[in-house]
Amino acid sequence: MSKFMLVLCAGLVCGMPLAAPVKDPLDSSRWPDLQRQYVDDADVRFDPRVEVLAPRVAEDSMNVPVTVRLRDLPDVKRVLVIADFNPIVKVLEYEPLIAQPGLSFRLKLQQASPVRALVQTGDGRWFAGGQWVDAAGGGCTAPSAGRSAPDWTQKLNQVQTRIWRDGRNQRLRLRIQHPMDTGLAPGIPAFYIEQLAVVDEKGQPLFRLDTFEPLSENPVFSFDLPDTGDAPLRLVGRDNNGNRIDARVQP
């Protein structure tokens, strides 16, 4: 009996550190739940190759700029961006396909929160990186500013684009007119862009992006792709009300 206890104790003492989950370097109380919810409790390696660039203090809680940089991580299939303490946690899910796996965008923060990128590679493994952003908050429960303009419905889903080329790669920047309402402001239902993709002339996607309520109003994105020359590209997508986005990406 006492021998059994001894073994049990030894097992507990030795075994526990092994079984304990990898410590969250951002030390967020939400992480164990988020790990369960977004990566199905898979092992996640916090890795310096997953860089999340964001200001330490959000000057504007409605527009917190974020760049996810994945310079040396090969074979990235999926990039999930989440904000732990937002009422709606998931910001976007990016499938880079032939594009580079990093991207830039802006999000709304309801309070100070870690902003994380969870990155899955072709072998199924998950990598993560992130940063705490301090914020005065309120970004998710405020109505969009554009709704007070009389012509917002006419501008809905209008797209501005610009491409920069260096011979091998191209940077594509996009701005889409959309209120991106979260549904959390009193009396204003959720109204946001859900899907975006850039496709070539045959309709083949170069990358795909699912977007969610916390993205900023009139979202601005930057993507990096191999140079596709003069082949015409289109931005296609839709919002949660079924409004289509379909714009030629000007070369």
Partner: peptide, 30 residues
């Protein structure tokens, strides 16, 4: 960093417009 938040959207808007002006056509479609 704060100034980038305050002011950069205005410069971005100019940069989008410059491209439109350079191509001499509208940048958007529904």
């Amino acid at each position: 960093e704060r100034s980038v938040s305050h002011l950069y959207p205005g410069y971005e808007e100019d940069a989008f417009r410059h491209r439109a002006a350079a191509d001499g056509q509208s940048v958007q479609q529904k």
